[in-house]
Design a protein around this nucleic acid. Structure first.
Lengths: 350, 350
DNA sequence: CTGTTAGCGCTTTCAT
DNA sequence: ATGAAAGCGCTAACAG
């Protein structure tokens, strides 16, 4: 395989000169540039990016940290969608995207550090965060370039790292809106089907639920709040448990459409009428929610845009440009469909 | 940032020794090993993977070539699903996954070559191929380690590169089965809503369609075959065109569920009854197809398994192990639902 | 405008 | 069992 030396020899110049035409250096004569270019062509030369990285200390690659095994992460439409957003800007900017594959639950810390110290990535995007996330703490401490999709909270749920870059949607407000929608329909017993509670986004959504209830003067009932994995199965299980309560809920807020789908399916199997017997609200506006019968009321999160913004931010940071607001919050939107208001009053399907 | 020299100095040994404990070299005394390990810990040392790559000529990274802009690729559930499969084995094997982001349509060739020559990846997985694909030709010519999901056909549709490694589902047979299902229901005018015809999988599915018709003694009518992008919109458009024919079809085979969804939606909007007025079959068993009303008959492709097999194969190749069969074909399965046989006769939803 | 030199951080013979 | 030295392919001062 041809190296820069081979090209230099073939073109009758020094390696540095070849390196210069590679870099598009201005002060180089047209004649030699062409000779070099031709030699590269003839030898089918492609520069060794690894060797270059070693000296330039950049890789033109950014890492994506999912904090979950790939197998699990990509089961939820959120990730492909956020990658679409990220990819659309990285393609323009000429960066590659490295998926950090993490074995289990918590070695994403090690994996991420390895990527950085190993100089395999110039920066990373974290797609989610946990309460008191130690990965974020380490990234902040080491001043590594990163952007978080979400927001950093300490173990007690207090905002931290005001210097960190992140892009988020206001999950507290979003959940609050969802619950208020149900309250306005007359519901008073509202169940909350949560995912794993250590994630910040689930924490925030629960926060919104509690806030909405408090404002309505409804006491918080822990029996109405269940958490599990974000799968249809666990959604269905949660519903069964809630329905077995002495005073079961008349409406459910699920923190993810996948859970909501499980709830919906279980409810229909049980012969419940939705929304007459049970109203259901999900999160994310998964394309599937427009097709279910009844169609599913859900909170639309601007996932693609979240990815775009995060990538743009990171690229700016890597360029050394100051990022104007270090934190940005994108709006959510409640999509009211038939699972809460019934066929007649719901909006269009698609 | 600590380097191997720093560790060596701190431990009072030479860099080579540090390198040896890093590599788990056997002939090294327990005492020095521990001193080195401790020094690494104290200095928070992480080896520079780039520097290592430069000398070992491996990166422990494999590339994923989608041959489409990320933004487009990840709009179809096929990619996340295949990545789930790939990721599940790469995590075990300790490989990273690099998404090669390609600007437009055909620079995936350049991008892929850059990855290889640049030593950024040890091998690649191609997620799809075109008729007479020059990327495959180049990879074969240069003997680069790669696995194709699909199969290589020349520009005329003839199988080529019998030495190449690939994993595929039998798209010809699958499409044939789908059409035969419709024939068995009495349909004689069957429309075919295709994607871009230069892809091998669309070519193969069209092949299957033609074969089934031929066997049934039905003449091939080019007016019944339309191609477009794989979007719901183009699916809807195709249906409109087909319905405006003097002798419109009573059934549609779409090469992808996304197209089928577009067809279904357009049909329902038009007030057609499905399947009474129009039967619809899709491909891929997108989760959404179990939720539509009517539920969608579709051909289930083992996408996850395709990813698993491809990754396993590639890892074996990289290990230098001979891969037993160089080509493997995974079975498809026709999932009969209400869009062809009506509610009563369809199977369970999920 | 171009060549010389040094070195990025690591692995790997070859000695000892 | 360990160290010395060379080199992976490239870039980046520094000369000229």
């Amino acid at each position: 395989m041809a190296t820069i030396k081979d090209v230099a020899r073939a073109a009758g110049v020094s390696p540095s000169t070849v390196s210069r035409v590679l870099a598009g250096h201005p002060r180089i004569s047209q004649a030699t540039r062409e000779r070099v270019l031709q030699a590269m062509q003839e030898l089918n030369y492609h520069p060794n990016a690894i060797a270059r990285s070693l000296v330039t200390r950049t890789s033109r690659t950014i890492g994506l940290i999912t904090s979950r095994p790939t197998e699990q992460a990509f089961a939820n439409p959120f990730f492909p969608e956020v990658i679409r957003g990220i990819g659309s800007v990285l393609e323009e900017e000429g960066y590659n995207l490295l998926l950090a594959t993490t074995h289990g639950e918590d070695d994403d810390y090690e994996a991420c550090m390895r990527l950085f110290r190993g100089r395999q990535v110039d920066g990373v995007i974290l797609t989610s965060s946990r309460l008191g996330d130690r990965l974020i703490a380490a990234l902040v401490a080491e001043e590594q370039p990163f952007v978080l999709i979400g927001r950093p909270l300490d173990a007690e749920g207090r905002p931290v790292y005001s210097e960190a870059h992140w892009v988020n949607n206001d999950n507290v407000a979003a959940a609050q809106t969802a619950v208020e929608h149900l309250l306005s329909l007359g519901h008073r017993r509202i169940g909350f089907v949560n995912g794993p509670p250590h994630w910040v986004f689930t924490y925030d959504r629960l926060e919104g639920y509690r806030t909405a209830l408090a404002r309505a003067g409804i006491a918080y009932d822990p029996d109405l709040v269940l958490s599990g994995h974000i799968t249809q199965q666990d959604g269905g299980r949660a519903l069964e448990r809630l329905l077995s309560l002495p005073d079961p809920p008349t409406a459910i807020v699920a923190v993810d459409d996948t859970l909501a789908l499980g709830v919906l399916d279980a409810a229909l199997r049980r012969g419940l009428r939705v929304p007459e017997d049970l109203a259901v609200v999900g999160f994310n506006d998964d394309p599937i929610t427009a097709w279910t019968r009844p169609t599913l009321t859900t909170v639309r999160i601007p996932v693609f845009e979240l990815g775009v913004m995060a990538a743009r931010m990171l690229v700016s940071i890597l360029r050394g440009q100051p990022v104007r607001p270090r934190q940005v919050i994108l709006p959510c939107q409640l999509i009211v469909r038939a699972s809460t208001v019934g066929e007649g009053r719901a909006g269009a399907n698609v």
